[in-house]
């Protein structure tokens, strides 16, 4: 079957649609002296602590539009970094958008002067998955977006000098924490920020996302509690001016490769190791985020983390794609030219045009051989099928092959994305060319 291209996965069509109830949360049993486990849930799923705070979840059109925004912001940042690497620290050029963050390197403040370069283009962290962490002493709980595509963790803070968006949890109040301290401007930690400022001797941070969402405030230290572990002196942003597409979350947990990320700050404790699992949409179970050397499941197949392409992002070497067990004919240079990022916050996998085209063609042929006809596409998704009246569908397998031979046989819950039962689409999209 492997060479004839007919490997099939039997898909429960209902498994592509959101579940409606959540099983009781499982007690964390994995935490130990050098490890900690947090629960991961879909922000709009039945197990989300934010679920009842929403009027209704975003539409598929909104989700996919936000996803495209995120992808474009990642592309901008990678391009800017690549330019810097090539030109040896050439300055980032300001983008055309206004800068609502308005932070001036070297001095204050929270004003609205447009100076922060938009083209710094961090990936927007609206993401889909959230975790609940503790902050301060005594610790209060905050549900935040978890994001491997950015570094600086932040929460909205009292007194919200300029603006806070609506969130479900109470705002973090530094005055109620006995261990809170602002980072001073002369502290070397202030230099770790990509965008920093100074007011009254206090270090200011700013993060502006690709779609204009932003957070600005004091860079601070306090005790971070993950599972039952306390990380003392954790550096984070205490946001005093925040707005954008952050849902009802209290902020964001940055898990990138940069100096300010939790990954790096807690490297002394967990060795820079972490792992997570996103549950399928239909299941009533939760996923997890583990820290520590024991985080790696025994059956993990590894591929090199490519660190020469700049900070923050986790680059890996995608080398090939198999559909129905058959390797597609795609030159490896198609993948290696731009590289591939593993991102927790992008919903739909993006491929170079040549690779996407080969995948789409092979999948379409496999579906046709199984009696399925294509229907109209939806947003960025072009290859869609009508599963009305079908409870189980046999669809071609899709596997991603990485440098070193690691292979990700995409789970049945991840091959297709259901807009509705009448429009179920291949969950891949093109980035438009092979050179981006």
């Amino acid at each position: 079957a492997g060479s004839s291209g007919d490997e099939t996965v039997l898909l429960n069509v209902q498994s592509l649609l959101p579940g409606r109830s959540c099983a009781a949360p499982q007690e964390n049993k994995r935490s130990g002296a050098t490890s900690a486990r947090m629960q991961v849930v879909h922000q709009h799923g039945p197990c989300s602590p934010l679920a009842d705070a929403h009027g209704k979840p975003p539409s598929h059109a909104e989700i996919l539009a936000a996803d495209q925004n995120r992808v474009e912001s990642i592309q901008r940042r990678v391009a800017a970094t690549a330019g810097k690497l090539k030109k040896r620290a050439a300055p980032v050029q300001p983008g055309p958008k206004k800068n609502p963050a308005g932070i001036h390197p070297g001095h204050s403040s929270f004003s609205s002067a447009p100076l922060l370069p938009v083209s710094s283009g961090r990936a927007l962290g609206t993401g889909n998955y959230v975790v609940t962490l503790g902050l301060g002493t005594p610790a209060s709980k905050y549900t935040v977006v978890f994001d491997t595509g950015s570094d600086t963790t932040w929460v909205q803070c009292r007194p919200c000098v300029v603006k806070c968006y609506k969130q479900k949890d109470p705002l973090f109040d530094p005055a109620r924490s006995s261990t809170y301290a602002n980072v001073s401007c002369s502290d070397s930690a202030c230099d770790d920020l990509d965008e920093s400022g100074c007011t009254g001797g206090h270090c200011l941070y700013a993060v502006q996302y690709g779609d204009g969402s932003y957070t600005v405030g004091f860079f601070a230290r306090d005790t971070l509690t993950i599972a039952h572990d306390a990380i003392k002196g954790f550096q984070f942003g205490c946001g005093e001016k925040n707005d954008g597409l952050f849902g009802m979350t209290a902020g964001l947990l940055g898990l990138g490769r940069g100096k300010t990320s939790l990954t790096v700050q807690a490297q002394y404790r967990y060795g820079g190791a972490f792992a997570y699992c996103f549950p399928a949409l239909s299941t009533d179970t939760t996923g997890y985020l583990d820290f520590g050397p024991g985080a790696s499941p025994a059956n993990a197949r590894v591929t090199p983390m490519l660190t020469d392409n700049g900070p923050t992002f986790y680059f890996v070497g995608l080398t090939g794609i198999r559909v129905g067990g058959k390797q597609l004919s795609i030159p490896e240079t198609v993948f290696s030219t731009g590289g591939t990022i593993v991102d927790s916050g992008t919903v739909i996998t993006r491929l170079p045009e040549t690779a996407y085209s080969a995948l789409s063609s092979a999948f379409t042929a496999g579906m046709a051989a199984r009696g399925f006809k294509k229907v109209a596409g939806y947003s960025i998704l072009e290859t869609c099928y009508d599963f009305t009246g079908i409870s189980e569908a046999a669809v071609p397998t899709v596997s991603l092959v990485f440098k070193g031979g690691a292979c990700l046989d995409v789970d049945e819950s991840g091959i297709l994305y259901a807009i509705s039962q009448a429009q179920v689409c291949l969950a891949f999209a093109s980035i438009g060319d092979d050179e981006s």
Partner: peptide
Amino acid sequence: TGILGNTQQKTYGVVYDLGKKTVGFAPGAC
């Protein structure tokens, strides 16, 4: 730049190790 999105990561344990400079994928993790 290609991006491996979270839909394709579902049910896999995605493992990062800054010390060893590896990323890993473990099926059936949740």
